[in-house]
Design a protein around this nucleic acid. Structure first.
Lengths: 123, 123
DNA sequence: CAGTATCCATCGGGATACTG
DNA sequence: CAGTATCCCGATGGATACTG
């Protein structure tokens, strides 16, 4: 289905890691969860301006499948679901830091803009 | 057109880096060039079993656009074009090593297969 | 609030054939 | 050898409406 993770065969480790981070918002989700520790669905939505509900839940599910995020349901009214990183998620994030630095360097080189986050969260 | 690099705006450095490595074969191309120093078109083809000429040249062009690879044309008969990494390509590769280790770990965890490289290069 | 369900546009990527 | 040029398909991702 929408489970896009191939789970191999892979050419190498980078291939295997990319498989899991591929997807427009996954690295951002990782980042959000890493910095807030725990986030609710709506909080993540607000943190990722431009993401649709469908893509958000789809990515979260895949990342849960891949053992990166933990999903905790609090059975109350109104519903409350909290997402957080597993240890694998945390270590993946750590592994991504050097890549992040390289990317930041690149942004400086090419003079790339940063996404402007409006308070309403729209484009 | 097929120039898929967005060149911003980006959410963060990881976003910017992923933009440049996105594409089914780019990280593998990086790897190949890093380990062989310099490779010809046909050599890369053989090194990436399953890649089509179209995707290979497309990725190479984008990576050249992004300043990751250097393309050297030797005007002779038969034609000879050599690809190699620029310093930015090399540093990107370095930034990817920790991710590669994480991915290798993951492969062990989930028991993923490695791509088998047949001598003919087919699947 | 936290999703599900559809429908739809786009794009990455593969196969194949042709060229300088 | 090193590409170009087309055609085509499936996956990815977006918009919108509905539900427990």
């Amino acid at each position: 289905m929408a489970t896009s993770a191939r789970r191999g065969p892979y050419f190498c480790g980078i291939d295997a890691a990319m498989d899991v981070v591929a997807g427009k918002w996954k690295s951002l989700i990782l980042w959000e969860l890493h910095h807030h520790g725990t986030r609710r669905f709506a909080e993540l939505r607000r943190g990722l301006p431009g993401v649709s509900e469908k893509m958000l839940i789809q990515h979260l599910r895949e990342m849960k499948e891949d053992g990166l995020v933990h999903r905790e349901v609090h059975r109350e009214v109104p519903p409350k679901v909290e997402y957080s990183l597993t240890e694998h998620g945390v270590s993946l994030n750590t592994a991504l830091t050097s890549l992040g630095k390289w990317g930041a360097e690149r942004m400086r080189r090419i003079g790339a803009e940063k996404v402007v986050i409006t308070d309403s969260g729209d484009k």
